[in-house]
Amino acid sequence: MAKFLNTSATNYFLEELIKEAKDRLILISPFLKLNDRMKELLADKNRLKIDVRIVYGKSELQPEEINWLKELTYIRTSFCKNLHAKCYLNEELCIITSLNLYEFSQVNNNEMGVLIRRSDDAELYKDAYEEAQRIIRISEEVRISLERVTTEAENKPDTKSETEESTDKLTSSKLAQKLGVKTNELIEKLVATDHLEIRDGKHYLTPKGKEVGGEFRMSPRFGPYFLWPENLNL
């Protein structure tokens, strides 16, 4: 029989679910932002070579978190459009809850959920597991990187109109590719040359950046990114 979980119980059993995973771990959450404890637990699963799948719909990862996550070989991430489900499973336990993998929710919100044990309710666990697998199948698997998921400079525009409006300009990752450097190295260079500035942990165009033709855009799918003239001189 499923067990009701309040806020503290949800957090407790989610941690236990991750720690007890021996074969597989599935984490489905619209928002992806990891606190230190969650990062510690996931790093341990990676060391044990546990297959971890994370499905998200929006990301608030900072560059340092992205760099950390992309080093974890056994953790695969997928993007699922219009994701609203929050479901966490290992081979024996399943939690369906209001709790996101989002630091603010874990600290400040009032949450509730249910815990399903495979040994107690095999049919219910099976239904939840199969739906989780369906969500994974319809998701776009990505390797977390500064080129794909970032709050500062997105790889490429997501819509046709964005591409049409900027045919003579390149996204940060495309410009970096042309210059033969990594995207994060280009971003650092743009900050150093006063084309971008950092405020509250995010990157913004400076007057100089705008003067040379830099543009800020927002992709409905991936979020904010920058466009630059193809012949930008740094």
Rank of each mutant, 00 (worst) to 15 (best):
P63E: 03
L34P: 02
L69T: 02
G213A: 04
E162P: 05
K178C: 09
E131M: 12
K22P: 12
Y88R: 13
M38F: 11
I26C: 04
D23Y: 13
S98Y: 00
P157D: 10
S161K: 08
T150P: 02
V181H: 02
F79S: 06
L234E: 07
L72H: 14
E131A: 06
A192H: 12
L205I: 10
N100P: 06
M1R: 00
E188L: 13
F31M: 15
K58A: 14
S98V: 05
M38K: 15
T159L: 13
K202F: 03
E147V: 09
L89Q: 01
N100L: 06
K3M: 11
L41D: 10
N90R: 09
I198F: 05
Y102T: 01
F79H: 13
F222A: 09
L124Y: 10
V55G: 00
Y204S: 06
I18S: 02
L234C: 07
M1P: 00
S219I: 07
S8R: 07
E152T: 11
S145H: 11
Y102P: 01
A2N: 04
S139A: 12
V107F: 06
E64V: 09
M38H: 13
P224R: 14
K169G: 01
E152G: 14
G180W: 06
L41Y: 07
L14N: 07
K169T: 07
L72F: 09
G213T: 04
L61Y: 05
L175V: 10
F104N: 14
R137F: 11
L190M: 14
A132Y: 06
P157G: 11
I28F: 03
L5D: 00
S173V: 08
E152S: 14
L99F: 02
N184T: 08
N11H: 04
N100T: 05
